[in-house]
Design a protein around this nucleic acid. Structure first.
Length: 267
DNA sequence: AATGATGTTAGAGA
DNA sequence: CTCTCTAACATCAT
């Protein structure tokens, strides 16, 4: 769930709260200092200069050369309401606002690093282009996909060809363009590249407009669910008729991830 | 009880 | 060194 549209929704809601806010308190709660949660005390006294997003990461540049990096993992929620369970981080600001990070499964990340020093976050360090970057063209995508022989589904999830797709939107994009998820990345027909690029941009954009997709845990900062769930064509729809050709949608594990597709019209 | 879940990453092998 | 694959992380719901 927290894929690009969900993280972008959270970013947009956090921006008015946090831009120019001064951190007065930052502490871990029931979370071990380590790779996933680190150096929080360093942001105390610093001003948050912006609320940015790269792929599924939130990046908050701080006034003394650090960055606060937040990743929601699978179950991370940022909320102004004290969570009943699984609170991991508490942040307070000079303007009296308080924000909490709740993360049931502890797959999220919440750490302060020196700006740009991402060696503890390899996915962020080697993250692909932003899908809304104007340089993300069909030609660019073709060059990226030519670099790998793994299943296109798996390669999209790697964040390398383009940032921000997770299991839900990767399945939705491949369904939209009628590409079988097991197709080798470097064997995806060149003539499909414009459609593939457009599907990635359009689906992510439409999901942002719906505030993302809530399967179980994801909530916006305001506590709302993401409504894109109602627009899913493939993800989680195994056994139902394909909305396009009426064949039965199937579920298969590809690269260790549950994958949903139409065996009839996805080649 | 057993199974599966939205993401990332360490480690192993090629 | 790079590419690819697998399992692990922690917790809850069904």
């Amino acid at each position: 769930m927290p894929e690009l549209p969900e993280v972008e929704t959270v970013r947009r809601e956090l921006e008015p709260w946090l831009e120019h806010a001064i951190v007065s308190h930052a502490a871990l709660v029931d979370a071990p200092e380590g790779k996933k949660y680190a150096n929080l005390s360093r942001c105390i006294g610093q001003t948050i200069e912006a609320v940015q997003r790269r792929g599924k990461f939130l990046i908050l540049p701080l006034s003394e050369g650090d960055e606060l990096i937040i990743h929601l993992g699978m179950t991370g929620i940022i909320t102004p309401k004290l969570p009943a369970k699984h609170l991991r981080v508490k942040l307070e600001f000079h303007n009296a606002a308080t924000l909490y990070f709740q993360d049931t499964r502890r797959f999220g990340r919440f750490l302060v690093v020196k700006a740009g020093e991402y060696q503890s976050l390899p996915t962020l360090a080697s993250l692909g282009i932003e899908p809304f970057d104007e340089a993300f063209s069909a030609d660019y995508l073709a060059k990226q996909l030519a670099k790998s022989r793994t299943a296109i589904k798996t390669y999209l999830l790697s964040q390398k060809p383009v940032a921000g797709l997770g299991n839900i939107y990767a399945d939705e994009v491949l369904w939209q363009v009628q590409i079988h998820p097991r197709t080798a990345s470097n064997a995806v027909p060149k003539n499909l590249m414009p459609q593939l690029r457009d599907a990635i941009v359009d689906i992510l954009q439409k999901s942002i407009e719906a505030q993302g997709t809530t399967l179980n845990d994801y909530r916006t900062v305001n506590g709302e669910v993401g409504a894109y769930l109602e627009q899913l064509n493939a993800y989680g729809q195994a056994g139902k008729p394909c909305p396009r050709c009426k064949g039965l949608l199937e579920r298969e594990v590809i690269g260790g991830r549950s994958s949903h597709f139409c065996p009839q019209c996805q080649q």
